[in-house]
Design a protein around this nucleic acid. Structure first.
Length: 593
DNA sequence: GCCGTTTTCGGCCCGACTGTTTTCAGTCG
């Protein structure tokens, strides 16, 4: 089994143990194990399994090491099979209903023989759930509501859509006279590829007018909660938005708390405790003495000298950790060493590659796209329309491609635009790994993007070999959307990431962050380690319209989550360096000429 | 199940909210 599959099993075990009412810390140990495994390179897992050194990884002990090794070598785990067989499969999805946790699920299962959401809905309608000890009318109603909402609103939302929805709300909050500070928090602030809801945090001495403004926002469809310190609404798009209001002196602690992630917060609090401090959304206070952290924080009141997140991290001996890195994946250790990377910023992006025009399936002409890139202040723009095999996208054959190259050369020569245009192609990788164009055609382009658009159903081995063969072509400049995933729609095809990344590094091929909000592929989870090993990144919006050129912002978010710096990106290099990079690649591809 | 500069057992992050009970358990983030 590969690490993704093993991690999935560990997560399943955590869920099943939770349903069994097991020790919550044991449950967490399995879930942690899954996350830790995901962050390890495949080859390191293989090595540690064979050397029996998995246990040296922090968070993996004897039991997990043994189970991971068994899964890795045999693909099976008896412990898991037995556990899974001991519970009806319908119970786990009941965990997705808000207000229902393992204890309550256990109760309805044991006392009412409920083993699925359907059976639970029926039991609620017959009033049998309300009759149980510890349940009541309200709980029963809430469960029914939860089941109904799950169908309507159960899904997550693309980060870019959520961000676009949140921006005007945040701006509106900041413009209110009563608001001293406002930020978004949660996974939106951490730039996760999908978010569950929008979190807003406001510092104010006068909460009521702010709440009133928030619940009257034009896009609000329904108010689900409204109090003195918190309000929740459902927007037209189905996404939920939460507003929390705190006194100004508490803002920084609450901001850190509600930004998360949960795992990051747990580790931060452990660190605080090791230093005799107790940390919560209320403040950072001495752990000793009586009273809760909240009471102590209130006693300290405005005397706190921490007024920014940087100061909060500093109080725990840490470099400031940008929100994007707060995933509990080792950032605290690195911040302690003061060795966090200087993350790339949107303003450092000088150009973008992999964009389409009306020649294939784009909606704007070459000139319109260049004008759009110029308006964004980009120094260069890479055009890469589809190749002939992508018939569905009106892919260009050799004649049309060379005509487009000539048009681009002419446009550059005319100096109509300040933005330089690079002529390329998004060349199909055929099912056997060959490219859609012959070398002598590719040699006439500035750069070549290679991508899979057919035969998605190939197995992991075949797909990996296919990508590697394409990477080995001397004319290949960069690999596009390596897994072909569409977020919230379909998973990517399976590939051996380590082998593909190794091949790219060995052949000097760039891998893109496809910045289309539906793709964000290659995923941020791979980038930190890949870039450390020498992989160069290109942020490519895959724009099919002028407006989509701005997608590169979503790509920057992924790059930042992947710990990438400006130096690790082609697209933040000056035009002259990019030209040099392409020229050197071409020279290597045709050494004789 | 994991972990250790109070180490091999006994802890494990912290608080709010809700609904059910009358002092708290369960759930959530």
């Amino acid at each position: 089994m590969n690490k993704g599959e093993i991690a999935a099993v560990l997560n399943d075990i955590a869920t099943l143990l939770e349903l069994k009412g097991e020790n919550p810390f044991k449950v967490r140990a399995y879930a942690n194990g899954a996350r830790i495994l995901e962050a390890l390179p495949e080859e390191e897992i293989a090595r540690r399994v064979s050397e029996e050194t998995l246990q040296e990884v922090k968070g993996i002990g004897e039991a997990l090491a043994q189970k991971i090794a068994e899964l890795h070598t045999t693909g099976k785990l008896e412990f898991f099979e037995k556990l899974r067989a001991s519970l009806p499969p319908g119970l786990r999805e009941m965990l997705e209903i808000p207000g229902l946790g393992p204890k309550k699920i256990k109760a309805v299962h044991e006392q009412l023989a409920v083993d699925s959401i359907m059976a639970l809905e029926a039991a609620c309608r017959e009033g049998r759930v309300a009759a149980l000890a510890g349940f009541g009318e309200k709980t029963q109603e809430k469960i029914l509501e939860g089941i109904a909402n799950r169908k309507a609103y159960g899904q997550r939302h693309l980060w870019a859509e959520a961000f676009a929805t949140a921006e005007p709300i945040l701006a509106g909050l900041r413009a209110l006279a009563q608001v001293q500070q406002a930020e978004h928090a949660g996974s939106l602030r951490r730039r996760m590829e999908t978010v569950g809801d929008l979190d807003f945090l406001v510092a104010t001495e006068d909460a009521q007018p702010v709440v009133d403004w928030f619940v009257r926002w034009p896009e609000v469809k329904e108010i689900t909660a409204q109090g003195a310190t918190k309000a929740s609404v459902r927007l037209q798009s189905g996404i939920q938005a939460d507003l929390r209001l705190v006194p100004p002196e508490q803002f920084v602690f609450a901001l850190h708390h509600f930004t998360g992630s949960k795992e990051h917060n747990v580790q931060m609090r452990q660190r605080a405790l090791a230093r005799g401090l107790s940390m919560s959304e209320w403040g950072l206070v001495p752990a000793e003495g009586v009273g809760t952290a909240k009471e102590k924080a209130e006693q300290m009141g405005r005397r706190t000298d921490i007024t920014s997140e940087a100061e909060l991290f500093a109080a725990l001996g840490l470099q400031e950790i940008p929100p994007e890195l707060r995933e509990g994946l080792g950032e605290i250790d690195v911040a302690e060493q003061r060795a966090l990377p200087c993350l790339v910023e949107a303003k450092e992006i000088r150009g973008v590659f992999h964009n389409h025009t009306t020649e294939s399936d784009g909606h704007n002409t070459l000139e319109e796209m260049v004008a759009g890139a110029q308006a964004l202040g980009l120094d260069y723009l890479g055009i890469a329309d589809h190749s002939k095999s992508s018939v569905q996208a009106r892919g260009l054959d050799e004649t049309r491609l060379l005509a487009q190259v000539a048009a681009i050369r002419q446009l550059n020569a005319s100096q109509r635009f300040a933005t330089h245009v690079f002529a390329g192609t998004e060349c199909d990788i055929l099912p056997d790994g060959r490219l859609d164009f012959a070398d002598e055609i590719l040699a006439q382009l500035d750069y070549v993007v290679v991508a899979v658009h057919s035969a998605f159903r190939q197995g992991r081995e075949e797909m990996t070999a296919r990508l590697i063969r394409a990477i080995e072509n001397p004319y290949t400049t960069m690999l596009a959307h390596p897994t072909g995933r569409l977020l919230l729609e379909r998973p990517g095809y399976e590939i051996d990431f380590d082998r593909v990344i190794d091949a790219a590094i060995a052949h000097g091929v760039i891998i893109e962050i496809n910045a289309s909000p539906w793709r964000l592929d290659l995923d941020w989870r791979h980038w930190r380690r890949a870039a450390e090993r020498g992989l160069l990144c290109s942020i490519n919006p895959d724009a099919h319209t002028v407006a989509q050129l701005a997608y590169f912002h979503a790509g920057v978010a992924v790059a930042r989550k992947g710990w990438l710096t400006r130096e690790q990106m082609l697209t933040s290099k000056p035009l002259a360096e990019v030209r040099k990079h392409f020229a050197q690649r071409k020279q290597r591809a045709q050494p004789s000429s």
